[in-house]
Design a protein around this nucleic acid. Structure first.
Lengths: 315, 315
DNA sequence: GCTTGCACTGAAATGGGTTTCATACTTTAC
DNA sequence: GTAAAGTATGAAACCCATTTCAGTGCAAGC
């Protein structure tokens, strides 16, 4: 495979001039420029991008950590990141972690090894201090509420979003409200707890359903809900897919939604509209785009994106 | 940032020995090994992976082309690819193309530039000949029926899968069957046409609905279907999400499924189960895993994955 | 005692660009 | 007419690790 020196030889110029031509730098005479282009063509020259990355010390590549690529929540964020990356001429490296800390470390190491210039963490399991330790190697953006001057962040105000769903249900006369969480120990989970307890006093642990991520989780939780002797009359649910699973299973086993139980989802995924389901819209695509802008920015920033309650027929 | 030569100096050995230690090669004495490890530690050494990539001539990275990362069909394939990649110590680079040829070229160029060792194309817009031109730069796997010795492939037999759905509907007494396609000119589209015409004679163009990818497309198509004077009494639909959109919209505007129209989807996404929808199961996760195995294999291969009709309540 | 063969090591070549620096030649500016 | 500014170019340093090659020392085999 021909390299830049071969071209230089054939074109009768120096490697520096070849590099200038290939990168569109000024100060190259037209004859030499043409000679270089001809030689490159003739030798079927292909740049070795790894050499460029080594020499330049950057890769124009951003790493993205996400627990599950096939989940719509993360898929849509990723789509936003990808479209912004494309517009800015960046490549994307993804690491699917399953919330496995080893794999998160793997992704963080890409930053340390200079394989990526920056890192977007859509969700994580490992402690924030560990992430902070890597901030010296490149910009890191987290999709969660955060402050400080080491990491950037873009997030929905989980507390307020959850509260808006609760208030809406309260207005509707619902007072026995349960909810689901993705992971009981997570940050957004404690934001929910706080919002809940401010409005309804101490939460009843068996009205909080954990591990709610997928449609199947929703189905399972509907079964658990139905088995309770003191069933909540409304559920605020992690995301629209869990909500769909919950809602459909409730109806399947003979309950009415919203008659027996109101359902509020999150995300405003098209599925919620198709099922006429009340949901809190989160601008996930936009969140991904912002995360990308932050990761290529020299400044550290913290951005909150808006949410919006969309009232439909399930609550 | 310290490099291998700094370590060599501090440890009093040569750079070659440092490299040997760092890569676990044999034939290094225990004292020198320890000296190198100590020096590396002391200097906070971090390997520059780009130099490794350059020197080794490969990156242990695979590129993945997919039109829409947030669509479950591609998301699940990607998830399969990602899990296989992780098991094999490979990284993944993704390019979301929106079926834009320029962006597909961008991804193909990653192969040419040695940024990735191989490429998986889950779906494409550009001509196959163009893809073949890149086969000299690395292994390329396509997720579509293919033969030849330049590219590998993994696929579902679209013709048979579609036929099985048609036969099932025919058995149920349905004879006026319409269907949807993602892109009228696509390959799987012509496989469907062939299967259709073999069983029902010439297809009626207005019973074929194009551009069917998302829930919203399904909703739209339900409207178009309802507006026909000679409505099909059964629909075979591109994927479960379109099918869900179709089915729910039909019901919303007052039709019965399967009474007025039977619906068969594809993929067996959890949503189809939640809605008790008949579907043709495609093992997409597995397809992604196979695609990955193929892309790191030295052999070219063509693999067909099985499908399975799952009878539920919508047909 | 002598030949093999293995363990161990470093110099140097290799992968392939980018970029600084020095130099030389032209123009423009006053 | 001369200084300053701009254009053009190549040599060489630099980014950093891998790997081949040559060579030394030492032990086993005959």
């Amino acid at each position: 495979m021909a390299n830049i020196h071969d071209i230089a030889r054939v074109a009768g110029v120096s490697a520096a001039t070849v590099s200038r031509v290939l990168n569109g730098h000024p100060y190259v005479s037209d004859e030499k420029r043409q000679a270089v282009l001809d030689a490159a063509d003739q030798l079927h020259y292909e740049k070795n991008i790894n050499a460029v990355h080594l020499a330049r010390g950057k890769t124009e590549t951003i790493g993205v950590i996400l627990p599950f690529v096939s989940h719509p929540y993360f898929g849509i964020i990723l789509s936003g990141i990808a479209s912004a990356a494309e517009k800015n001429g960046y490549k994307l490296m993804i690491v699917q972690t399953n919330y496995n800390v080893m794999q998160e470390m793997d992704a963080l190491d890409m930053l340390k090894l200079k394989q990526v210039d920056g890192l977007i963490i859509t969700s994580r399991e490992c402690p924030i201090e560990l992430v902070e330790d890597y901030s010296e190697y490149g910009r890191i953006v987290l999709c969660e509420a955060l402050s400080g001057n080491l990491l950037s962040s873009v997030f929905v105000n989980q507390y307020e979003a959850f509260k808006s769903a609760l208030s809406f249900l309260k207005e509707k006369g619902k007072t026995n409200i349960g909810y689901t969480t993705l992971r009981m120990e997570g940050k957004s989970s404690s934001a929910r707890k706080k919002a809940y307890e401010e409005q309804f006093g101490e939460m009843r642990r068996h009205w909080v359903f954990d591990q709610a991520l997928t449609i199947e989780d929703g189905t399972r939780i509907a079964g658990e809900w139905a088995a309770l002797h003191d069933r909540p009359d409304a559920m605020v649910i992690t995301n629209d897919f869990v909500a769909v699973g919950f809602l459909l299973e409730c109806r399947r086993i003979g309950f009415s939604v919203p008659g027996d139980v109101s359902v509020v989802g999150f995300d405003n995924h098209p599925i919620s509209s198709a099922l006429n389901m009340t949901t809190v819209e989160l601008p996930l695509q936009q969140l991904g785009e912002i995360a990308f802008q932050q990761v290529i920015s020299v400044e550290i920033s913290h951005m909150e994106v808006p949410f919006r309650l969309i009232k439909r027929g399930s609550a």
